[in-house]
Amino acid sequence: MSRVNPVNQYLRMDRMPHIWCSGCGLGTTVNCFIRAIENCGYPREQISIVSGIGCTGRVAGYLKLDSFHTTHGRPIPFATGLKLANPKLKVVVISGDGDLFAIGGNHFIHAARRNMDLTVVCVNNFTYGMTGGQLTPTTPIDAISSTSPYGNFEEPFNLPFLAESAGAVYVARWTTYHVKQAARSIREAIQKNGLSFVEIISPCPTLYGRRNKLGDGLAMMKAFKENSAIVNGADTREVGLDFKGKIVCGKFIDREKPSFLDMYHTTMAERFGPFYEPYEGVQ
């Protein structure tokens, strides 16, 4: 076939097919991300992608950008160093719910607090897929996982609320059913100054769906379609997720706040006056 999928130029086609299962939402999320960066106004050489570990951690390895597959839970501090070394880069972290909010939770809240100039995309499939479907900080109450075989009884994180509370300037949630909206939100998030956060609810049919009798990937996608409601500007305190419950999607937060680098420049210029060497990266 001579016609080539336009997304291929952004993918490491020499690594295809990828390792993700049939019906997994990660490829769909990658599609949304590619559509977002195509129209974001930044050349691809300037966009770096950083992932942690897990199924979502493999995203970096499939994208044909400067891409870093780091350690479990640590893509945000890696991205922080990368961004600060070269502020001209647009640095996007794509990782999973376990990576970003269990082992990496502390890094997320601090990146949001200091309003680090990063975009964080969390693919939330409510489980650790790579290790066999264990409980994560977003697994809903009553959901079964391999380490909560009698049903989860721990309160999960409401990620948009967490992101807003910690200081993120842009907070949105979509499911992999909402491909156009997700692509638009990721694009807006990349264009934003400061820490922007997009949660993508994604099916893990193999290890979350099957165990919880939610059907295959397609059945889970249909459920996203039926159970979701778009409420832009919704109060993030109200958007927590229940097992099989309503999924409130939309752009919840879009606010202006000086970023880490903005504050750095302002403070140092004030303190050092003519002796301040405007920080433009270390190269």
Binding site: G81, K83, F272, Y279
Partner: peptide
Amino acid sequence: PSVGGMFIQMEDEIASSIAIQGAVWGGAK
């Protein structure tokens, strides 16, 4: 700040030890 460097106090040592590696891949020593 007066020599064009960037110091950041991270949230812990784990973060510090990987932030420097991000910086190196961004071109810094």
